[in-house]
């Protein structure tokens, strides 16, 4: 059953983009849209959007890069370790949880390292994998999404995003302990 579901999901995720690229112009053509002209018209914005996010990305990524390079993450990890050990999170996992909202490539590096040291099918390997897949790089998403429309006042977005990250970590620890321990 899960095997069928899994291959269905795989087929869907492989076929969806080509389907979209085929069906959209076809439907548009039938409805009398000049598809080539409209495509070019829309694509013109691609450059502007990409350039527009640069200052926001620089601001966020530089601050995060400095923070990572300073070793401050180890200090934070040391400070909250008693708390995370109390809920049953292995010490090896904590750096991944802290890195995830800050850096996608950084946390992927940590997860890959854990998987290679402890094995993909160990408890730590499975928990690290779940953790990586269950949240996004909050600060990067914030810089790109808000930057693209020129928003500098993010209100409660950071707080909501970080609360979601924390929930993702707790939920990952909980479900992995239940299923894999």
């Amino acid at each position: 059953m899960t095997e069928i579901l899994r291959s269905a999901i795989n087929i869907l995720s492989e076929a969806l983009v080509p389907l979209f690229i085929a069906v959209v112009p076809l439907v548009a053509m039938i409805r009398g849209v000049k598809i080539y002209e409209q495509f070019v018209e829309g694509a013109k914005d691609g450059f502007n959007v990409a350039v527009r996010i640069i200052p926001y990305l620089v601001a966020i990524l530089v601050a995060i890069g400095m923070f990572r390079a300073s070793g401050a993450l180890d200090w934070v990890a040391g400070a909250i370790r008693p708390l995370t050990e109390a809920i049953g999170m292995p010490a090896e996992i904590l750096p991944v949880a802290l890195m995830r909202p800050l850096s996608g490539s950084g946390s992927l590096g940590l997860v890959t390292e854990l998987i290679n040291t402890h094995g993909a099918d160990s408890f730590i390997g499975r928990l690290a994998s779940t953790l990586y897949g269950s949240t996004e790089t909050t600060f990067y998403v914030l810089a790109v999404y808000f930057g693209s429309v020129g928003i500098t006042r993010s209100r409660h977005a950071v707080l909501a995003g970080l609360l979601a990250d924390a929930t993702g970590v707790l939920a990952a620890v909980f479900i992995c302990r239940v299923l894999f321990l």
């Binding site: 959209v24 849209v33 495509f39 829309g42 694509a43 914005d45 691609g46």
Partner: peptide, 13 residues
């Protein structure tokens, strides 16, 4: 970005 914004423009129209 250009590819998807182009497709989205068609989808919108």
């Amino acid at each position: 970005m250009s590819l998807w914004l182009g497709l989205m423009r068609i989808a919108e129209k």
